[in-house]
Nucleic acid binder design. Structure first.
Lengths: 122, 122
DNA sequence: CGCTACTGACTACATCTGTAGTTTCATCGA
DNA sequence: TCGATGAAACTACAGATGTAGTCAGTAGCG
């Protein structure tokens, strides 16, 4: 069971999943555009993630290099499961049905998913 | 935009979506099995939901009757959207792909979803 | 060799969450 | 009528979260 990751922490993880290892400053630079966090804020989030053992640290002279210890897929699997359990009784079909009914699915989406499912069976 | 509803509050909402209006005591009875919350806890959660205007209150003598002011579907739509946005870049296809790869989809699920999509197109 | 600047460590603090306890007011039964 | 009971309102409090500020140490530059 992967530790709970908060919304802000998740932003940091996305950066590290894209490229790692990175220093705190590099991470801060990469989130600077989307979020407007200060370097200190990013460092706090990195510390919390390290405390949860979701990322690892490696000394590099006077700085630290941070890398994810959890695969993005592993994390997504856990979160998706919790989400589907909590809101759709653990069944994926109602989720897809809901998204479809709520017009969240374009015709292209539908075609893509159909193709995907065909491959799965094959 | 529906106000953020916490996990515990969501449990209360599920009860009210199933049947409403209900008194605080009735709600407490209905969550007693699954969660082990005290009546006081349930009342606190009801107050917070009422403060967020997610449920409405109606005086009934010396008690209150609580009812949802937000449809379950509306709520699900918002939460699902946020979920897909945050974790799958707003695209549903990668979500389905992920669930599929993570073996979260049984053959039956796949058949169900295919049928669902066929109806959508028709 | 000493000062400056960058880095991690520690501290801060308001708000949200989970989980109640306590107080007060009204009502129903004896 | 008066006390017990039940309901809402108010208070509590620790841990998580978002968002930093401050302190202290070290390495590199002059």
């Amino acid at each position: 069971m992967v530790e709970r990751i908060s919304d802000a922490e998740h932003e940091i993880m996305e950066v590290l999943w894209q490229k790692a290892p990175l220093t705190a400053t590099e991470v801060a630079d990469r989130v600077a555009d989307s979020k407007g966090w200060s370097l200190q804020t990013v460092k706090t989030l990195l510390s919390r993630l390290a405390a949860k053992a979701v990322i690892g640290t490696e000394r590099d002279g006077r700085r630290f290099l941070y890398s994810p210890l959890v695969e993005r897929d592993t994390y997504l699997a856990g979160v998706s499961r919790k989400f589907v359990d909590r809101l759709f009784g653990g069944k994926v079909t109602p989720l897809v049905a809901h998204l479809a009914e709520a017009d969240e699915l374009s015709d292209d989406d539908i075609r893509e998913i159909e193709e995907l499912l065909r491959e799965l069976k094959g």
